[in-house]
Design a protein around this nucleic acid. Structure first.
Length: 547
RNA sequence: GCGUCUGUGGCUCAAUGGAUAGAGCAACGGACUUCGGAUCCGUAGGUUGGGGGUUCGAGUCCCUCCAGGCGCACCA
């Protein structure tokens, strides 16, 4: 609908012999009814080019647009707005189309579908997921759902840092707990993982191995502990994500980048391009040549590779070996200092940096009774994602996480969300859907006949038109979410439709209306139901037939 | 200090550079003997952190200052 008007404005520009590339006009939704359904600022922008007053241009544009049979009327307003009043039947034609082709109505027409990877969560398996991971999981999952719906080929990936120091520390922590359980007194390392879950894993190891591990060489034992702890924790993470309705197509292990010598190969490649040099016994990557503010160590003087080294190789693998057109990395905002160096590395590899989209998800402040809860994994002073899901439910948690822009800092007060759960917007939306389904159920049970033809002239009420408009507008929500990689646009669209549905429901009746009106209203509700259903699917929230 | 995100009613957040800055929560007052009251309608609440600038037009863009979060390793 909005696109149709955009085309009309472009035709207007053609009639003036102006290239539309020169005029970056917009089609807007006026906030006030008296300014119509849509408006454009094109006359004000043309003023400079044509050297005429905006209102003068608007008046001649008005004459041009009045030829179209889409409009009830076209108005102009100071200082040069052109306001379009669309005929109600035009909106209801769209409703009819939605009922016919269902969610396909909302698919954008892509110039070219892409092969896109979305990498998200990627938490080290050193402890259970916390609420910050939850937000990243919800955002990444929704982005994947949206891109996929829009027609792209999407792969969801979880990257596991299983090669680094943190995993070794996990093994050491487990081994010490194991020894302590066997009565061997040993001090716990200061930066070890102190969570209770480590003790549970150590207990399992005693069940499995008894005290046999004490007799093996320590290196080997720590290796066993690392693997065991990593496996147990990883399966716990997967269980949480499953409960959260988040799934992955691929788990990519950092270790394989070393085992296959791909890290070494990548450094060699960069070295051949002379982007690598040695200084103070370490190997450096000259990222400053590509926009970074300082060069980065890629191999430490003790011979160990940095995290950055494997990350460069990993991204080379994504783009050049696996040939993704676009890669989306969903990171916590605490990694934002990393963006520049990653982009620099991409450039050094000769890849167009616009193909790498890094979505920085802002920090979640977890509060309990208004008091901030610390979220250190090592000290295990945090509330697990699992606990949050149990307290507030998957739907409420997901809705909360994706209802705000990724840039906004999110205060998540457990007590507040719990206490307000009945006023939570997610229930407002689900209730709207349930009301529609309940009407359908009653119609079926009462054996009421519905016309198979949509007689749109039977819909005369303001609330009906408003509902229709909000449904059609959902197409813009999807476009915005797609273009900005911002799922919250979907939530806003859902809430808008829900609001209009509730308003309609309170003012008018479906069952009990005159038969032709009843049938027409069922058509309208069918379109609302299809659209809400799509919205819920895109954010992974359940569409409930009853609450 | 440098970088980055944020600053909008009491609270949580919207507003593709557009017209009179909008919702929800909290407060107050109303609405069905028929489809589910987890709803609806209304009242009240604002110098968009301060100050400059850009232009037909700024919450939005630029500069500067203030406040807060998060980063600034041969850590991961």
């Amino acid at each position: 609908m909005r696109g149709t008007i955009e085309q009309l404005v472009k035709q207007f520009l053609v009639s003036l012999k102006i290239k539309d590339a020169d005029v970056n006009f917009t089609i807007e939704y006026p906030k006030i009814d008296r300014f119509g359904d849509y408006s454009t600022n094109v006359a004000m922008l043309l003023s400079k080019i044509l050297k005429k007053l905006p209102m003068e241009i608007a008046e001649s544009a008005k004459v041009f647009f009045e030829d179209s049979d889409l409009f009830e009327k076209v108005d102009t307003a100071n200082p040069g707005f052109i306001n379009f009043f669309v005929k109600d039947t035009v909106f209801f034609e769209q409703i009819k189309k939605i009922v016919e082709i269902r969610e396909n109505y909302f698919k954008p027409s892509l110039a070219k579908p892409k092969k896109i990877q979305v990498e998200f969560v990627s938490a080290n398996p050193t402890g259970p997921l916390h609420i910050g991971h939850g937000r990243g999981a919800a955002i990444g999952d929704c982005i994947a759902r949206i891109l996929s719906f829009c027609g792209h080929s999407v792969e969801r990936e979880y990257y596991i840092n299983d090669a680094g120091f943190q995993m070794k520390m996990l093994g050491i922590s487990t081994f010490i707990r194991y020894k302590q359980l066997l009565g061997i007194d040993e001090p716990f390392p200061e930066n070890g993982y102190q969570g209770e879950y480590i003790t549970h894993i150590a207990e399992d190891m005693i069940t499995e191995y008894g005290d046999m591990l004490l007799k093996k060489p320590e290196d080997e034992t720590i290796g066993i502990c690392t693997k065991k702890a990593g496996d147990v924790i990883m399966s716990g993470i997967l269980e949480s994500l499953g409960k959260f309705r988040v799934s992955f197509d691929k788990f990519f292990k950092e270790k394989q980048l070393f085992d296959s010598k791909f890290v070494q190969d990548t450094i060699e490649l960069l070295s051949n391009k002379s982007y690598i040099y040695k200084k103070d016994g370490a190997v450096w990557f000259k990222t400053t040549a590509f926009g970074d503010d300082k060069d980065r160590v890629i191999r430490k003087s003790d011979g160990a590779y940095t995290y950055f080294a494997s990350d460069v190789a990993y991204h080379r693998d994504k783009f050049l070996r696996r040939q993704f057109d676009d890669v989306i990395d969903v990171w916590g905002a605490d990694h934002h200092g990393y963006v520049n160096r990653m982009k620099s590395a991409i450039r050094a590899l000769g890849i167009d940096e616009d193909r790498l989209h890094i979505v920085l998800v802002q920090i979640v402040n977890l509060l309990r009774s208004g008091k901030k809860v610390s979220m250190s994994t090592r000290k295990a002073e945090y509330v697990e994602l699992d606990d949050v899901l149990n307290e507030v439910g998957v739907d409420a948690a997901r809705f909360m996480f994706v209802s705000r822009s990724v840039d906004s800092h999110l205060d998540f007060d457990l007590d507040l969300v719990k206490r307000q759960s009945n006023d939570n917007p997610v229930f407002y939306a689900q209730y709207a859907y349930a009301r529609i389904m309940n009407i359908f159920k009653n119609i079926k049970e009462q054996g009421i006949n519905i016309d198979s033809e949509f007689k749109m002239d039977r819909l005369k009420e303001k609330k009906e038109v408003n509902l229709a408009k909000s449904i059609i507008k959902f197409k813009d929500s999807i476009n915005a979410a797609h273009n900005d990689l911002e799922p919250y646009h979907i939530v806003k669209g859902i809430l808008d439709i829900s609001e209009k549905l509730h308003q309609f429901y309170n003012k008018h009746r479906v069952i009990g209306s005159e038969p032709s009106i009843l049938s027409a209203r069922v058509f309208l509700l069918k379109a609302a139901q299809i659209t809400l259903r799509l919205g819920f699917d895109l954010i992974g929230v359940e569409a409930k037939n009853k609450m």
